[in-house]
């Protein structure tokens, strides 16, 4: 049989698919992920996270999941942090007190890893919502002048 053309075409399709990440990165020009420390808000009386950074980096979802189960199913709202201080098991009230910059602090990595947590399907973002409200008000007052 003389199928040279078909086989070569098939091989080209194979190579294009297999090297997809290479040419996709070549076209998009990948910039290395900026692993800089994200500044969080200075909240009086809170200078340390409830767990060590290494634990939080890889396992924050476990902690949040645990908290959610305990709060929603058992009504058990309070716990101790790694240093023995009493804290509320709350994403909005405890975590986001300091980490109010969701876009910087949460979304950056989540987007980088295509993780779409359903936290904010229910939770509101206290600081960002306030900022948005403020912006609206500022716009409105400017419009009046």
């Amino acid at each position: 049989m003389n199928d040279k053309g078909k086989i070569v075409l098939g091989l080209i399709v194979f190579l294009v698919i297999m090297t997809f990440p290479m040419w996709y990165n070549f076209i998009n020009g990948v910039v290395p992920f900026e692993d800089a420390v994200v500044q969080t808000a200075n909240t009086p009386g809170k200078d340390k996270c409830v767990r060590a950074a290494d634990y939080m980096r890889t396992q924050h979802m476990d902690l949040l999941n645990e908290w959610r189960q305990e709060v929603v199913r058992n009504g058990d709202r309070y716990t101790e942090d790694a240093y023995g201080n009493k804290i509320e098991k709350s994403l909005s009230n405890t975590c986001m007190d300091c980490h109010s910059n969701k876009e910087e602090f949460c979304d950056r990595c989540h987007n980088y890893m295509a993780v779409a947590p359903y936290c904010w399907d229910c939770h509101v973002l206290p600081a960002e919502v306030q900022q948005a409200d403020m912006a609206l008000k500022v716009d409105a007052t400017e419009g009046n002048e």
Binding site: P21, Y112, A114
Partner: peptide, 9 residues
């Protein structure tokens, strides 16, 4: 693929 490309398609 998400571990090899950025932005993720």
């Amino acid at each position: 693929f998400k571990y090899f490309v950025e932005p993720i398609p």
